[in-house]
Nucleic acid binder design. Structure first.
Length: 614
RNA sequence: GCUCCUGUAGCCAAAUUGGUAAGGCACGCGACUUUCUAUCGUGUAAUUGCGGGUUCGAUCCCCGUCAGGAGUUCCA
């Protein structure tokens, strides 16, 4: 397996290098393949969402499969966006799902420090090196000046880009006289260092997921490498760190694909092209398909939510009264079959309609966002997050009751699949089955129903004793006491009827407490006056029965029914409702066994009297 | 607007150097102690976005077109 992987990679390298590169270079690549070093590099700007966790998972799976190293690097170069507690959230989340790190800020390692803010000095050095070797230049344009240019361009429906075509008319070390540049630098004026993208060239990026992707260098913008505060941008920091940490594979989200050309250029500029890592860009995680969650039941509450959100986003919208806005949103939501085409903006649409449609389009489609969780009622974060404002606080998969193993399994299939029919994988099995080649190219749709299905599968296939143990602690808290044997029985019976472990106590509450109400509709239907005497007679028979095992109860009750020529439903349905309040649930005989003789008799009497008066 | 990526049933998603379409979710039906929002079995559903081309043969290669997404920040 590894050997095959290997040969493919070597072939790829040979192909790319047209076969004539030095043999040692190939050997280095070869050795890298044996022990890949990959990093998960989030920035601590808030809670880590599900997409970030998936990136971490894929990095982990790839590293473990090939016996490599999984590294956490904190990308905190933007001090204005730093959020206290975010780093701890990241490590807590990784720990909860069982993604063990080999090197990290906490663990340390031979390539530290692992926070970019602590590596600040080295970036400046490389930034200036770029200027020295002709791959970069000092730019003195202020943010205001550039913003003005962007606004002007926007007026003409164009985008201002700091690139080959425009850099010669801007204030930088390429256009200013040498002495003026020196004077500016000496005077301590603010400056940035920009990458000088070459002209008339095609940059090739070899992506493991997407194959060869081409970029025209003329269209690339001269990205800022070193900011005026002395900190690097992501682009510089990322390349410098990946090089110095000997990263062999960069596995990250698709949003990075367009800037990868710059990164390739940077490796070249710094003379590290031979050490450039392989790239693998993961498909985006998309919002769930509207048709999958909008239905007649929730359309009103969704309309409500969308409308209030619309006004939050467009506070000055007065083109139409609120009622009409609401009506329109509802109309579009209800037209499920056509929802994607209905949101299309047409030429004849008036301004008000366009604004509303644009809002709906952006909230209904596109990348999964943290807002979607609130809106659609499912978590998009692994753990709960307490933000500064109410708006910025979320619950996580853990709090909803997800088994971390189920979450991982679900996440693994969001953009990857093994090509077999197997869908349930433990983390170790995922490691075994995983390969970057099998990652899909198209966006992966987030499907909460599928996530719940996975959790249910883990519950169903879980060990009864282990589930019972977890149940016991919940029961203890509620003051529900019974034998371990019975708790295990409850686990076995109810795990198949629950999505989350937490559902079981709700469904099984009647076993411990009499405080339930009867399903009157079903009771009325199933309780028949003509059978009343027989039903009471069965209570007496049960009173005289000593063996209350499910097997014996089944024997006794069935015999009674056949002896008296009654229907099963005539006898068992009223019993069910009297004992548990509802007409559904596990086998009646198991229910009686769990409730116990004394309470069974009491409840039957009480229930039947109630049914008689309905 | 420009750049890049993507487009297989209601939804997710396989078919890895071209050989006429897996599986899952949802849905229908049946069975399961005449219970069930559970479980098991089974079934319906796709002119592979659209239009051309190359080929004996195209989901796969080429051209065009439409749609969706991402990027276009001294953010990551």
């Amino acid at each position: 397996m590894i050997y095959d992987y290997f040969c493919n990679k070597i072939n790829e390298v040979v192909y790319r290098r047209k076969f004539c590169q030095k043999r040692c270079f190939r050997i280095i690549k070869f050795l890298n393949m044996l022990q890949p070093r990959v990093r998960f590099a989030p920035s601590p700007t808030g809670a880590l969402h599900i997409g970030g966790l998936r990136t971490a998972l894929y990095n982990y799976l790839f590293a473990k499969k090939l016996g490599g190293t999984f590294i956490l690097r904190i990308e905190d170069t933007d001090q204005t966006r730093y959020v206290a507690g975010a780093e701890k959230y990241i490590t807590d989340a990784l720990e909860w799902v069982g993604l063990d790190l080999n090197e990290s800020p906490n663990l340390g390692g031979n390539f530290g420090p692992y926070r970019q803010s602590e590596r600040k000095e080295m970036y400046g050095e490389f930034g200036h090196l770029l200027v020295k070797n002709g791959w970069g230049y000092y730019a003195f344009d202020t943010e205001e000046e550039l913003n003005k240019k962007r606004e002007e361009a926007e007026k003409n429906k164009q985008t201002f880009s700091y690139n080959v075509h425009t850099r010669n008319s801007l204030r930088n070390s390429l256009t200013l006289p040498k002495n003026e540049v020196e004077q500016l630098l000496n005077s301590g004026a603010d400056f940035t260092i920009r990458l000088k993208c070459p002209a008339d060239e095609i940059i090739y990026v070899n992506d493991i997921v997407r194959g060869q992707v081409e970029f025209q260098s003329n269209l690339l913008d001269d990205k800022v490498m070193l900011k005026s505060d002395g900190m690097p941008t992501y682009h510089l920091a990322n390349v410098v760190d990946d090089y110095s940490m000997k990263i062999t594979h960069v596995i990250r989200g698709e949003e990075w694909l367009p800037s990868t050309a710059h990164h390739v250029l940077l490796y070249r500029a710094l003379g590290w092209e031979d050490k450039m890592p392989h790239f693998a860009h993961l498909p985006l995680i998309l919002k769930p398909a509207p048709a999958s969650y909008i239905n007649n039941k929730n359309v009103d509450s969704l309309t409500e939510k969308f409308t209030s959100e619309f006004y939050k986003k467009n506070p000055n919208f007065t083109l139409k009264p609120k009622q009409e806005v609401q009506k329109m949103i509802r109309g579009i939501l209800l037209d499920v079959n056509n929802i994607s085409s209905r949101v299309q903006i047409k030429n004849k649409d008036k301004e008000d309609k366009i604004i509303i449609k644009e809002f709906l389009k952006s909230t209904l489609f596109g990348k999964l966002s943290k807002r979607d969780g609130d809106r659609l009622g499912f978590p998009v974060f692994p753990l709960a997050w307490q933000g500064e404002k109410e708006d910025d606080s979320f619950i996580g998969f853990r709090e909803v009751g997800f088994d971390p193993k189920a979450l991982i399994n679900f996440l693994a299939f969001l953009g990857w699949n093994p090509g077999t029919e197997q869908e349930i994988f433990s983390l170790d099995e995922l490691v075994e089955a995983f390969s970057l080649e099998r990652i899909g190219k198209s966006g992966a749709r987030f499907d909460y129903e599928k996530a719940k299905w996975y959790n249910q599968q883990y519950l169903i296939h879980g060990n009864d004793e282990e589930i019972a143990q977890q149940l016991k602690s919940i029961f203890d808290q509620k003051g529900w006491y019974t034998s371990n044997k019975k708790i295990t029985k409850i686990a076995a019976l109810y795990k198949e009827r629950a999505t989350f472990l937490n559902d079981i106590p709700n469904k099984a509450a009647f076993i411990f407490s009499d405080g339930f109400s009867y399903d009157e509709k079903n009771a009325r239907k199933k309780w028949k006056e003509k059978n009343a005497a027989k039903n009471y007679e069965l209570i007496d028979i049960l009173k005289n029965t000593t063996d209350f095992s499910p097997e014996n109860l089944e024997q006794v009750i069935k015999d009674f029914i056949t002896d008296n020529e009654l229907g099963f439903g005539d006898v068992m349905s009223p019993m069910r409702i009297a004992l548990s309040g509802v007409a559904g649930g596990p086998s009646l005989f198991d229910i009686i066994y769990l409730i116990g003789k004394g309470r069974t008799i009491d409840r039957l009497k009480k229930g039947y009297q109630y049914f008689e008066n309905l």
